[in-house]
Amino acid sequence: MEKQTVTIYDVAREAAVSMATVSRVVNGNPNVKPATRKKVLEVIDRLDYRPNAVARGLASKKTTTVGVIIPDVTNAYFASLARGIDDIAMMYKYNIILTNSDENGGKEVQVLNTLMAKQVDGIIFMGNRVTPELREEFKRSKAPIVLAGSVDAEKSQPSVNIDYVAAVAEAVKNLIDHGNQKIAFVSGPMDEAINHDYRLKGYKKALKDAGLTYDEKLVFETDYTYKAGQALEPALTAAGATAAFVGDDELAAGVMNGLTDAKIDVPGDFEVITSNDTKLTELVRPKMSSITQPLYDIGAVAMRLLTKLMNNETVEENTVILPYGLMKRSSTK
């Protein structure tokens, strides 16, 4: 006799909730009380209800699916990481669900819930900040979560990065060695740990080591966009800066072109060094000097670390720091 197909109606009846609630749980809608979600998922598990291919692994408790949360799918930095993640995922026969969180804290919590409701076996999070709300969700997650190219000052999650403090310090020292006394620090929002607790720390360290005074007037907080960088020229000139360290390649391209439009010669009158060494550094003129990061490797190592955690293998080191370099091109002397 053929086994009868379990329907959404059966799940709703067993869990004593409406079909709409079951549907919300299955589709990862955040408007479900945690206790209700738990109850519905238990019934789904027990009845072996398979809403579609996504849930086919519920019986074995494994879906061989990994969720990847990316803040901006159009940013070359995150796109390069995603390639590394994807290749290793394929090697270990995992499917990927890629979600875009628009660098929006509320949306990050929502996509995280969506992925959990899809019963993913693990999650790779790439975001510019780990908010307290997000940290709470991380704690609730049964699936392991690895941060790739994202910093968590509390080190509560496994992560793969470079030493951002040392890298920025070395980049800024390079500008100081070229005789620059007033170096601008241009970055995205300062409430992001990567900017405030890492990059700015590296910048301050380089100044201190060289006996230069830190001046807040040389710190520019803006958006990670080309337009934002382009608009900075008058402020950089007014501050008397002769060089800049920039925390994002697209932003740096904007800074450089804004200077060039104002007839300021790069690198003759103003040097620019950027931080991610994405393809953009080679596409602009002059080509941009940059901190180099093994972007593909950060993604690949994060995915490999996740496979170990998903299979309960022992992990020697939860925080993986990969080597960085400094690529000198034509935007510095």
Rank of each mutant, 00 (worst) to 15 (best):
T278K: 06
V43P: 00
T274S: 14
I264M: 09
F138S: 04
D45T: 14
S150Q: 08
V266Y: 12
P30F: 13
V301Q: 13
K217E: 12
I176T: 03
V40P: 01
A244P: 00
L207K: 08
V246G: 05
E250N: 06
L259G: 00
S331N: 04
R24T: 02
R140D: 05
A244Q: 07
L58P: 00
F78Q: 07
R24A: 06
G188L: 11
S156R: 09
F125G: 02
V73Q: 03
M303D: 04
V219Q: 03
V219F: 03
D102N: 13
L81T: 02
N311C: 04
T292Q: 06
S290C: 10
I145P: 00
A228M: 09
T222P: 02
D72A: 14
A153P: 01
D177T: 04
N100L: 07
D209E: 15
I298T: 03
Y9G: 03
K3G: 06
N52T: 01
I273H: 08
K208S: 11
G106K: 13
P30T: 12
P234A: 12
D265Y: 10
I97D: 00
P144D: 10
V40L: 10
N312C: 05
I88T: 03
M91Y: 14
N75I: 09
A12P: 00
I96K: 01
L115Q: 03
L47K: 05
L283S: 09
L81M: 13
P267S: 10
T74Y: 05
S159L: 15
Y9V: 11
G57T: 07
D248H: 08
T314L: 12
L81N: 02
K62R: 15
G247C: 13
N95K: 10
L305W: 01
I8E: 02
P132W: 01
T314M: 12
G105D: 11
M303V: 06
E14P: 00
S18T: 15
I291R: 04
P30V: 14
E133M: 14
R129E: 13
K287G: 04
Y203D: 09
T278Y: 05
E133P: 00
L306R: 05
R50H: 11
